[in-house]
Amino acid sequence: MSKKLVTVTILLIVLACVLPLVLTNYRTFQATLVLVYAIALLGLNILTGYNGQISLGHGAFYAIGAYAAAMLMDQAGMPYWATIPIAGAVCLVIGFLFGLPALRLEGLYLALATFALAVSMPPILKAHFLEKWTGGVQGIVIVKPDPPAWLAAAGVKLSADQWLYYFVLAIAIVLFIAGWNLISGRVGRALVAIRDHHTAAEAMGINSAIYKSLAFGVSAMYTGIAGALGAIAVQFVAPDSFTVFLSITFLVGIVVGGLASLSGALHGALFIQFVPNIADELSKAAPWAVFGVFLIGFVYLMPTGVAGALRALTRRRSSGKLLHPKEALP
């Protein structure tokens, strides 16, 4: 990591820490959701951006994480923080298991299979025989956690929204650092090698079966944790919040933010949280029309997303000359 990048990252974290102190509770809640989406997008980016496995079904893993957290809180009476690792573990296992058959599916077919998973998730959640646990069509309502007592005892007064924001921020920072370590090391290089040339990677001794299913598992775990955090923030889970359009939202996020880029997850999360809010004032359908136009527009004009464009911009400024488009790619 270059010195400049470290400075920017620390500045960002400081900014993120100050944010809820100046924002209203509602805006803080929105910022919490941005962090949640950023975690989910990071997960999807590990799989699709770095490993080249197309998933149109990450909304399903988000749903599983959300339901795991909600069910544990509602039925087992677990504290909210204890549900996060469990939701992550459940999604890790399910993602890994889904990744095993996915090994045999290349590109388009994997997209098809995950698309099918996303479309059939709401009916599964609504199913009668699961109703005892999932609450059926009604879903589950959960209580927003209060700031812990020790914090108040120490003299720090936070609202529930502010506390949740800091809680999510801490987890996001940990997950981003872990993700950065994963991507910039041996594993990350193996994932990229598999994406770029499968056969050559195998010839180099990379066990692509293990790496690909592991990428699926880790990716699902990130998205599942995001789902759990999202459920706690929204205080509600219901089957119809997890339609195929949620999965498409995540796809929009990584395409707009930038494929195979950690900072892209943050840009993408800002985009999918705030652009629909703005477009919503036009019409109920407008956010999706905007999403669609951006999806196609980015593929044509900015295939490296916002993160890639920013990278090209800063590089150009520091070197003082235009870059060949090829160099701007990650």
Partner: peptide, 11 residues
């Protein structure tokens, strides 16, 4: 291509 198709679907 998949992204373009999905974009078309959404639009």
């Amino acid at each position: 291509v998949v992204v373009v198709f999905i974009g078309l679907l959404v639009i």
